Simulated assay, not measured.
Amino acid sequence: MKKLMLAALALFVLPATVQADHHKETAKKNIVETAVAAKFNTLVAAVEAGGLVETLSGEGPFTVFAPTDEAFGKLPKGTLETLLKPENKDQLVQILKYHVVAAKVPAAKVVELKKADTLAGEVTIEVKDGTVMLNDKVKVVKTDVMATNGVIHVIDTVLLPPSK
C-alpha cells in the first residue's frame, strides 16, 4: 500500500518537478514582482499595507502560499477592508506571515511533509486524492511558480493563524 501511495505521489509530483526545473532557469523576478505580474492584486495590496514588500523582495529564500483574489473574496464581508487599515497592521502582518515559509520548498518536497513552519506558526499538509491540502481546508491549486528568491504555491483560501 505504501508503494502504491508513493507511486501515486510520484505521478502528481513529476510534472511539477519538471515544471519547476523549467522555471528555475527562467525566473527573473522576485516573489513580489512575480505576484504583481501574476495579478495577485489583493495579496500585493496586503503585502504593501503590511510593509512586507522589501522583505519579500529580499534574498530569501521564501515559499509563499499565495491566496488568489477569489480566496480573499471568501473572507467575511468587511474583513479585508478592516485588515488593510493602518491600525490593524500587526494583525495583517501575522496573517501574511502565516503564508510564508523561510525556505524554498518546491511541490516535490511539500508532498513529503506533514507540516510546514511558517513565520507565524505551523501549517499542516496532507495529500488527499492527489490534491495538496493545508490545514484540512485550503487547497493548493497551482504549484512551483518560481521566483529568483523562492517559490509560490497558489491556494484557494486565505490561511488564518490559530488564535492564541
Rank of each mutant, 00 (worst) to 15 (best):
T63L: 11
K29Y: 08
T55V: 11
V44E: 12
G73H: 09
V13E: 05
L52M: 15
K39D: 08
G130P: 02
H23C: 03
M133F: 00
Y98G: 07
V110D: 04
K128S: 03
F40D: 06
A103L: 08
E126C: 00
K29N: 11
K29I: 00
G130M: 04
T63Q: 08
A66W: 14
V110E: 03
M5R: 15
A46E: 14
D129H: 04
V127T: 11
T17L: 06
T148M: 07
P76Q: 05
K164C: 01
K114Q: 10
K137M: 05
T148R: 06
N135M: 02
T68D: 09
P86Q: 09
H153Y: 11
D69K: 14
A8H: 09
F72N: 03
G78H: 03
F65E: 01
V151Q: 15
V141C: 03
V123S: 01
N88Q: 14
K115N: 12
T157W: 05
L96S: 10
L6Y: 09
K28V: 08
A71G: 06
Y98K: 06
E70V: 09
K29G: 06
D69Q: 12
E48S: 07
L4M: 04
V141L: 08
A10H: 08
S57T: 05
A16V: 10
G51D: 04
L9W: 05
T143A: 15
V44Y: 13
P161H: 10
K39E: 06
A147K: 07
K115V: 10
K3H: 04
Q19R: 09
I95W: 06
D129P: 01
D144T: 08
A66V: 07
L75G: 05
L84G: 12
E59S: 11
V105C: 03
L11E: 04
L96W: 13
T42S: 15
I125D: 00
P161Q: 11
P67C: 12
T82P: 02
A45V: 01
D21W: 14
G60P: 04
G121F: 01
K2N: 05
L113E: 12
K85T: 15
A116F: 05
V145M: 14
N41S: 15
D69Y: 11
A8Y: 09
K104Y: 10
K2Q: 06
L14T: 13
V18C: 06
K104L: 13
V93R: 07
D90G: 11
Q91V: 14
D136S: 05
D144I: 07
K89D: 08
A35V: 03
K142Y: 12
V32F: 13
G58Q: 03
V47P: 01
V127K: 00
V132R: 01
A46K: 05
M133R: 01
A147L: 10
H22K: 15
A38R: 13
V145P: 05
V13L: 04
K89W: 07
A16I: 02
S57P: 02
M1C: 04
I155G: 05
L159R: 02
T68N: 09
K114E: 10
S163D: 03
A116D: 01
V36C: 10
K139F: 01
D90W: 06
A37D: 14
L6N: 08
T148F: 03
L159V: 07
I31N: 10
Q91I: 12
L4H: 05
